[in-house]
Simulated assay, not measured.
Amino acid sequence: MSASGLDVFDKTLQTTHIWLKEIETKVGPDRQVAWKVLSVVLHKLRDRLPVDLAAHLGAELPLLIRGVYYDQYEPAKQPAKWNRDEFVAEVQRWLSDIRPVAAPDAIDAVFGTLSHYVSPGQIEKVKRALPDDIQACWTNGASIGRPRGETTH
């Protein structure tokens, strides 16, 4: 028998922990911080996407992560028109209530995790829907908030 009594809940909890562990490797070993980073970056990414694409991305997320993805969603206000600098600033603003985490590191961690676990075709559609300056950072693996070649260390 499963721990919760429902296999679907156990599976999504296990998958969520896997995603959070991956994020923790980039933002530090704190599960609550990793959850906040995941939820903030997902919200800001979702808000930057056209509504239909946001829904398609949401459909590919694990159940528990899908719940946080849709939390406080207002499709009538989408998509936001942020460029890279505005996107990074918006993420940083929403991360201000936890221990310091640089928005570029948070964004890189979540984009990388999405790239590992969401289908490549869906990731390509998401990338193409983003403005060139955000898209280029994700596509080329450069840090979203730093010029190419600049590292976080």
Score class of each variant (00 low, 15 high):
50 P>S: 00
40 V>P: 11
106 A>C: 07
3 A>W: 10
13 L>C: 00
71 D>P: 00
35 W>I: 11
144 I>Q: 04
30 D>N: 15
103 A>W: 10
125 K>V: 04
124 E>C: 00
86 E>C: 04
130 L>G: 08
6 L>S: 15
12 T>D: 13
10 D>L: 03
26 K>C: 01
23 I>Y: 00
100 P>S: 11
151 T>A: 14
59 A>I: 01
75 P>V: 01
131 P>C: 06
11 K>W: 09
61 L>S: 00
95 L>W: 04
60 E>R: 12
84 R>N: 09
106 A>F: 02
27 V>Y: 05
82 W>V: 06
140 N>M: 13
41 V>D: 05
55 A>M: 06
47 D>G: 06
59 A>E: 14
110 V>A: 08
5 G>Q: 08
59 A>L: 08
21 K>D: 15
86 E>I: 02
24 E>H: 07
10 D>G: 01
93 R>C: 01
30 D>K: 10
15 T>R: 09
102 A>F: 09
95 L>G: 04
112 G>L: 02
124 E>N: 09
64 L>H: 13
17 H>L: 11
49 L>E: 01
101 V>Y: 06
99 R>P: 10
147 P>Y: 10
32 Q>P: 00
131 P>T: 07
66 R>W: 03
29 P>R: 15
23 I>C: 06
136 A>V: 12
74 E>W: 11
35 W>N: 11
21 K>H: 10
31 R>K: 11
8 V>E: 14
113 T>G: 02
117 Y>C: 00
25 T>K: 14
66 R>I: 02
58 G>I: 02
81 K>R: 13
137 C>D: 12
130 L>W: 02
52 D>F: 03
150 E>L: 14
96 S>L: 13
46 R>M: 03
94 W>F: 14
70 Y>D: 08
67 G>N: 05
82 W>R: 14
63 L>R: 13
133 D>Q: 09
17 H>V: 08
56 H>L: 12
38 L>Y: 01
74 E>Q: 14
100 P>D: 12
96 S>M: 12
21 K>C: 06
33 V>I: 15
40 V>E: 07
115 S>K: 15
98 I>Q: 07
125 K>G: 02
23 I>D: 02
75 P>D: 04
87 F>V: 05
117 Y>A: 04
107 I>M: 04
104 P>G: 04
109 A>V: 08
3 A>N: 11
108 D>T: 11
25 T>G: 09
27 V>T: 12
83 N>P: 00
18 I>K: 12
52 D>G: 00
83 N>K: 12
107 I>V: 10
33 V>K: 08
73 Y>K: 12
48 R>K: 13
130 L>I: 07
53 L>I: 11
153 H>L: 08
22 E>D: 15
72 Q>W: 07
20 L>G: 01
6 L>K: 15
81 K>Y: 00
60 E>Y: 03
54 A>W: 01
117 Y>P: 00
81 K>N: 13
76 A>D: 15
114 L>C: 03
42 L>P: 02
107 I>Q: 01
73 Y>A: 12
24 E>I: 02
93 R>K: 15
151 T>V: 13
87 F>T: 06
66 R>M: 06
143 S>T: 09
24 E>V: 03
17 H>D: 15
18 I>P: 00
77 K>T: 11
124 E>H: 07
146 R>S: 05
